[in-house]
Nucleic acid binder design. Sequence first.
DNA 1: CACGAAACGTATCGTGTCGATACTAAATAG
DNA 2: CTATTTAGTATCGACACGATACGTTTCGTG
Lengths: 194, 194
Amino acid sequence: MKNQTLILLDTVERLGNLLRTGLRQAGVIQGLQPIHLQALLYLNEANRYSNTPQALAEYLGLTKGTVSQSLLLLARRKLIARHADEKDGRIVRLTLTDKGKDVLKELGLTNTWREALAEASPARLSSATKVLKEALARMQVKNGLKTFGVCSTCQHNLHIGPRSYVCGLTKEKLSSREVSKICREHLPIEEKTV
Amino acid sequence: MKNQTLILLDTVERLGNLLRTGLRQAGVIQGLQPIHLQALLYLNEANRYSNTPQALAEYLGLTKGTVSQSLLLLARRKLIARHADEKDGRIVRLTLTDKGKDVLKELGLTNTWREALAEASPARLSSATKVLKEALARMQVKNGLKTFGVCSTCQHNLHIGPRSYVCGLTKEKLSSREVSKICREHLPIEEKTV
DNA sequence: CACGAAACGTATCGTGTCGATACTAAATAG
DNA sequence: CTATTTAGTATCGACACGATACGTTTCGTG
């Protein structure tokens, strides 16, 4: 009999493959590869410290050279816009164009997933999420990777008033919309394992 | 606030990406791509009805032409062996060579995963597995895909005595080792959701 | 302030995935 | 015996991906 842990690993791997296949099929219509859609999805969620080629490369676990090529393609198709950073001339800021946002809207990737989990109890869902998030965080730490979380789970985030946030790292004010985006500087709050 | 279901989706996607990145890094040493390792892993678990290029293509969600190319590469490197089926001349049987098995042994892919889940309680693990297996099965059905499970969870499997099994589909006897392998004809037993 | 190091990004090359299409050979149906 | 189906291969074009090399801009340390 196989170890329970390995069965879970197998299941996650298969789900990952299936989601990737879904991305591939969804991208065919637009002539896009899975990695392109992943890039668009990331840029749609990245905060102002994280919308750069370098951050995307770290997020995807690829080299900056590889990512640079994919970004050139996306820019050619007018799905993203590239702007030089005002303060730091080395940095390129990436934003989704309206066309890029439309692509994401038309995907509707989450439907089958929602249906697949429709009958699972909320308690089970949240328990499963907890287990997997823990695993993800540990694997990221072990591999020296960044966690790319949102501000609400970040040690740097300071909640200085109602709907008023400051990042302790950059000392900048963040809007309540901004704190729900993902950040490459994210430092997870140590959670007590219940 | 985001839907709990979507948070789980996001986590699974990220874990999938991370596992894939792990595969990529592991393969660099052997000069292999993630897909090659996935093929080897599959062939290591596939039963006698499922060790063909076509079955592998279905499992991976790719076209047979694409898979054929990857298999040619693996054969060139002597990691797999190809034999014509005795009864059906169209079919090619794929088996791992000793060299191919060695590659899998040297990978040790599961270690970081094990460690990442070391502190999770068995109850949580099995609950999470249940949720995800359910989701996987539903998504496979929805997409018209095969489930590739083991005989013990298959409607075709007949347990005719202690350590004695027969597949109701092929009417062939199966060894107790064989029933723990994955099969392209797998038809999942309807499970009652507790 | 100068100069070397580091960080961000691009360009280019070779290997290989991937789908699409077209093909061969073997089995099967009528 | 012929038409169809099934398993697999061959080839082509677009592109991912890493490695390497390169150009800018910023930073740091004397």
